[in-house]
Amino acid sequence: MYRLIYIILYALVVIISGCYTVSNITTTDDPIILLERKYAVRLDASLKSSHAQEILTILDSTISIDYKIPTSIWKMSRDDIKDDIKLMHLNDVVFVTLNKKMFSTDTKEQNKIQKRLYFAIVDFLTNKGTDRLAIEQILKARYGIVVDIHSYISLTQNSTKETSEDYSDFDNKDLMIFISILEEFPTVWRRIPELRYIIQRIDDEVRAPGLAWTSEGYIELSASLFKRNFDNDVRRLLAHEKAHFLWEFYFTEQTKEDWINLSGWYEDLPSETGWKNTSKRSEFVSDYAYEKNPNEDMAETFGYYLVFPDVLRSVSLEKYEFIEKQIIEKYTTRLNPELLN
């Protein structure tokens, strides 16, 4: 029965496409028309102009205008849907059903609902994480990240001086994990020009599981990291490495000094790391954060803030609140002029 309905709808799409086009000259601010004109997205009567605007805003910030996506017809579900979206492909048309709960008017849940809608749209664009070109397009357009490296020799010439034999491509599943954590960063830090590449190192014995080469613009992750099947560990480590770029390029000296004082760090040049602290181990999220230096402590803590916030709160409420108020809220306001008005 449902398939027959989809076939009838498909026939209507073909007929409409053949006899009706939206003028490229006429300007409009109607999001329903813009969705069809820019992305070949058609909405049925269950989705209104306000819904169209939400979808349009996400698409505009997620893919480039010249990236072609398949013609699609969208509707809202009557019931709850697993994973918030259902896709059905019929010839060259994709029929999209969205979970009605993603358009709730509950203002308290607005941020969570918007993220659910975003990830549902990512599933549509990537065909549930199977379309490699779409995944790479999203990483580049929304987060400024390139994973298709043309020359590892050039990329690593000032760091490790290695070749393509030392690196491998990420699986699609790995890249979808990247999208899931990069989206958790505040909007002003989702895309930063200093971070341009993420690469996968084959040899796990050479260096740490993750390294942030801040002066060279890339993050290096080891291949073994993705064999553990602990997605949240990957998310936490990527958040950790990106946090090094924030420390290097965005945090003020005052912010760093306040963090150093909060964690009880002091310089100790004869020691292996050049730093020691006066705090208890129980006040740090990991041995690594406790044993290294303020930069690593911040990166570890930031990773836990985004991925394991309950753990961070239980370890140190002061550190959780520092990141919440002195970093997330403070820098989001300072770096986004719209929030100052």
Rank of each mutant, 00 (worst) to 15 (best):
residue 336 N to P: 05
residue 249 F to V: 04
residue 71 T to Q: 01
residue 158 N to W: 02
residue 231 D to I: 03
residue 244 H to A: 01
residue 138 I to H: 13
residue 204 D to F: 13
residue 23 S to H: 08
residue 113 I to A: 11
residue 295 N to G: 05
residue 282 S to L: 07
residue 34 L to R: 09
residue 217 G to P: 06
residue 116 R to Y: 06
residue 224 S to P: 08
residue 172 N to P: 04
residue 89 H to M: 09
residue 88 M to L: 12
residue 312 L to V: 04
residue 315 V to S: 07
residue 220 E to D: 15
residue 295 N to S: 11
residue 191 R to F: 12
residue 145 I to D: 03
residue 173 K to A: 09
residue 101 K to D: 15
residue 48 K to R: 15
residue 111 N to F: 10
residue 115 K to M: 14
residue 287 D to T: 08
residue 146 V to D: 05
residue 198 I to Y: 01
residue 169 D to F: 04
residue 250 Y to I: 08
residue 319 K to T: 03
residue 48 K to N: 15
residue 73 I to Q: 10
residue 68 K to Y: 02
residue 131 D to M: 11
residue 65 I to R: 11
residue 312 L to N: 02
residue 304 Y to R: 05
residue 329 E to G: 04
residue 102 M to T: 07
residue 25 I to E: 00
residue 227 K to P: 10
residue 314 S to H: 06
residue 25 I to L: 00
residue 331 Y to M: 06
residue 101 K to S: 15
residue 174 D to R: 02
residue 73 I to S: 11
residue 39 Y to C: 02
residue 13 V to S: 11
residue 241 E to Q: 06
residue 15 I to F: 12
residue 125 L to E: 11
residue 239 A to K: 09
residue 170 F to W: 01
residue 68 K to W: 00
residue 323 I to C: 10
residue 219 I to Y: 00
residue 297 D to Q: 10
residue 273 T to P: 00
residue 266 Y to P: 10
residue 150 H to Q: 15
residue 98 L to H: 12
residue 265 W to M: 04
residue 142 R to N: 09
residue 304 Y to S: 11
residue 311 V to K: 05
residue 73 I to M: 12
residue 250 Y to P: 09
